[in-house]
Design a protein around this nucleic acid. Structure first.
Length: 716
DNA sequence: CCATCAGCTTTTTTT
DNA sequence: AAGCTGATGG
């Protein structure tokens, strides 16, 4: 797409602003409007007008997008050397160079979700909170939201006034202490600490803002408060901040993204030039009309239309199938037809709301021998053997990393079991040592038998050998650690060829990193891959059909798109319905994002029955379908006849909950009873006014109650 | 110490 | 359906 075509409807001064002018710039761009192209062209134009590439900092939403943008900038003839990365990667660079919070060394570990979970569990245990209201997952989510809003544990503790808040504050503080002790930062900390660094140290802010004289941020609608503050800090000296985004494509509210950031841009930067790109160069008008109708249903929205530029194409197809395997089979059939007609598998994608829905499609594609790539299935870096090997390496780089110690020590049977580890932990706590340090002094560990002490010392000595190699090449070190740690032997003994294969793949990718990086080091490697997700592994040229979640589809485009499972409870997802109208609208935006990925052909489907969480359930078409003009069976015209048959097959009555007009409760909803307190719905038997609910109360008791007498209230 | 198994919960989306 | 925890026995 030619840049002049993209900027076609703009005034001369707007064009100038986009390509050359200093100062704040907001590009409000709908789907398929060429907004990423606008960024690369601005970068090229800036360099062309004499700006040094090293003075430009562009921020993308994913590593993949960063990589692509780098290539495009190079292809446009501009010099290499501008900084293009995600917020998180940028923060790692900054923290390593300018220092993180007090007491954190540059070799900090980056903790992913499972590491965080371990730490928060430890924190909850340490705070001696024994309540189902403080589950690790819930606390982690809660803490994450606070961090996204830049509220540290002190600040939160100061304003928490009820029991939940005070307890949460204690856990938050403890959690931060644990991270600190491990010399670790979690994903959110990377942002928080960078934001604080820029806020509290004017000299750092000044230096960085002078270094990056031009700041460009893509997908600005999905920035959270921490990212917003970082952006402000980075642009503080020059106001050369260019952001692009589309409020209608904001789909990360649950992660703290604040749509207000893009909506308030003009207030934040009073002299901002605002450019709207409403023409769509991607999709056929048939697709755009439907997408437009859908998104128009959102209340909290600035009106905007999608202006088609392409000729009429095929009508959007909406179809219903019996169950998910039939749905998958139909997709496979359609794909085969497209391929037979000379279609390119690279240009086809299948989207779904949740990862768990990928399996039937995979099976259908395997059967039909359709080549496919799944984005984010079993995540590579989440695999046990990968995390195991990486834990050794992390421990070499950061000996204080107890989470990695615990993982490494347990990778295979080496005569160090739970009891020994527990004794070691007590010992380490008593003397204020990291676990690895404590293991090195295990001869003093008089609570453990001599054999165990000996093994601990050997384990520590193993790391002593590598202590000075943290600066070396990543792949060589990885190779020798794998061979000498005993992991290789253990995997071979177990005959786990798949694991060994994965390890080889990891070592190969590390070798690739060593080759392609200017100053490779184990430290840099570990901090880099910690931010790498499987979404980044998407290969547009792989010659395969792509399978991914709707979230992963953001920023991509395909000739033919299938969107599966557009049903109530799936899209919108049931968990989003608890969250009120805002979350409901976000689900609608998610569907909108999915639809607008399609260039020529779009097929949307829903099924009558679906297996969910191991249960065969009846489903209802998504309300979104009717919003795009679906005339299929409406909920009033549902055929009840097979319900009996269904019940006789052993299904529970709650399965019917979805089709009743008086549906009041669904499984898992939180309710309160004036006598029994809080509880969760286990089952809802829809018998009209005689409906019965089965509730499992927090006391542990499960009760069946007549709805009309129970006087239940929904919580939140 | 470690392997195994039954029984339990848990289940969105991701940097 | 799948993953985790805790108990059991070798």
């Amino acid at each position: 797409m030619d840049i002049n075509t993209i900027l076609n409807g703009l005034t001369d001064s707007q064009r100038k602003a986009v390509l050359h002018r200093d100062g704040p710039l907001l590009v409000l761009a709908g789907p398929g409007s060429g907004k990423t192209r606008v960024i690369t062209c601005r970068i090229a134009a800036l360099i062309d007008s004499g700006v040094y590439p090293s003075q430009i900092c562009a921020i993308t939403f994913t590593n993949k997008a960063a990589e692509e943008m780098r290539q495009r900038v190079l292809a446009s003839g501009a010099l290499a050397g501008c900084h293009i990365s995600t917020f998180h990667s940028l923060c790692v660079q900054i923290l390593r160079r300018y220092g993180g919070p007090a007491g954190i060394e540059p070799f900090f570990s980056i903790y992913d979700q499972s590491d965080q979970l371990r730490c928060v569990k430890e924190a909850i245990t340490a705070c001696q909170v024994a309540s189902s209201n403080f589950t690790p997952a819930r606390m982690l989510y809660f803490i994450s939201r606070l961090k996204n809003d830049l509220e540290d544990d002190q600040a939160f503790a100061a304003r928490a006034d009820d029991f939940f808040g005070k307890t949460a504050a204690k856990i938050y503080t403890k959690y931060q202490q644990i991270l600190r002790k491990n010399q670790a930062l979690d994903f959110d900390d990377l942002l928080v600490q960078t934001a604080f660094l820029l806020r509290d140290f004017p000299d750092v802010r000044y230096t960085l803002s002078r270094r990056f004289r031009y700041l460009l941020i893509d997908e600005y609608q999905d920035t959270n408060h921490a990212q917003y503050q970082i952006a402000r800090g980075l642009a503080s000296e020059h106001s050369n901040i260019c952001v692009t985004g589309d409020p209608d494509q904001s789909i990360y509210r649950w992660r703290g993204a604040d749509i207000g950031n893009i909506l308030a841009f003009e207030k934040d930067w009073p002299h901002a030039v605002v450019v709207k790109l409403e023409e769509n160069f991607r999709s056929s008008p048939n697709i755009l009309r439907k997408a437009d109708r859908l998104i128009a249903a959102n209340q909290k929205r600035k009106a905007k239309t999608l202006i088609p530029t392409r000729p009429e194409g095929e009508e959007v197809q909406i179809r219903v199938c019996e169950d998910e395997s039939e749905e998958a089979g139909q997709v496979a059939e359609d794909v085969l037809q497209t391929l037979a007609a000379g279609g390119d598998p690279r240009d086809i994608a299948v989207f779904y709301r949740i990862n768990a829905m990928s399996r039937p499609i995979e099976e259908a594609f395997i059967r039909a021998k359709i080549p496919y790539q799944m984005i984010r299935g079993v995540e590579f870096y989440e695999r046990k053997e990968i995390k195991d090997l990486l834990s050794y390496l992390k421990l070499i780089v950061n000996p204080a990393d107890n989470v990695s110690f615990l993982r490494a020590v347990g990778t295979h049977s080496r005569g160090i079991g739970g009891k020994t580890v527990q004794r070691l932990q007590e010992f380490a706590d008593r003397y204020g040592l990291a676990l690895l340090e404590a293991a090195g002094q295990a001869h003093r560990l008089d609570t453990a038998p001599a054999s165990a002490r000996q093994r601990l010392v050997e384990f520590a000595q193993f790391f002593g050998r590598f202590a000075n190699e943290a600066k070396g090449q990543a792949s060589e070190l990885m190779d020798s650690v794998f061979a000498e740690s005993g992991m290789a032997e253990a995997l071979r003994a177990a005959g786990d060829d798949e694991a060994i294969e994965n390890i080889n793949e990891l070592i190969n990718s590390a070798a690739e990193y060593d080759r392609s990086t200017e100053e490779p080091s184990l430290l840099d490697y570990l901090q880099t891959i910690a931010l790498y997700s499987d979404t980044d592994a998407y290969d547009p040229n792989a010659g395969r059909v792509s399978l991914m979640t709707l979230h992963a589809a953001k920023g991509l485009e395909f000739g033919q798109v299938f969107i599966l499972g557009v049903e109530e409870g799936i899209l919108p997802h049931e968990r989003s319905m608890e969250g009120g109208p805002d979350e409901f609208e976000e689900e609608r935006r998610l569907f909108f994002v999915g639809m607008t990925r399609a260039k020529d052909r779009l097929t949307i489907s829903h099924v009558r029955h679906r297996v969910l969480r191991g249960q065969y359930l009846r489903t209802v078409p998504s309300p979104f379908l009717y919003e795009i003009g679906y005339a299929g069976q409406s909920s009033g015209a549902v055929d009840f006849s097979d319900d009996w048959e269904h019940l006789e097959e052993g299904g529970t009555t709650s399965e019917r909950a979805g089709i009743s007009g008086v549906r009041k409760y669904v499984a898992n909803e939180l309710v309160e009873h004036e006598k029994f307190g809080l509880g969760r719905i286990k089952e809802f038997l829809d018998l009209g006014e005689n409906s019965i609910v089965v509730v499992r109360f927090n006391s542990g008791k499960t009760k069946s109650l007549m709805l009309k007498y129970a006087n239940l209230t929904k919580v939140r």
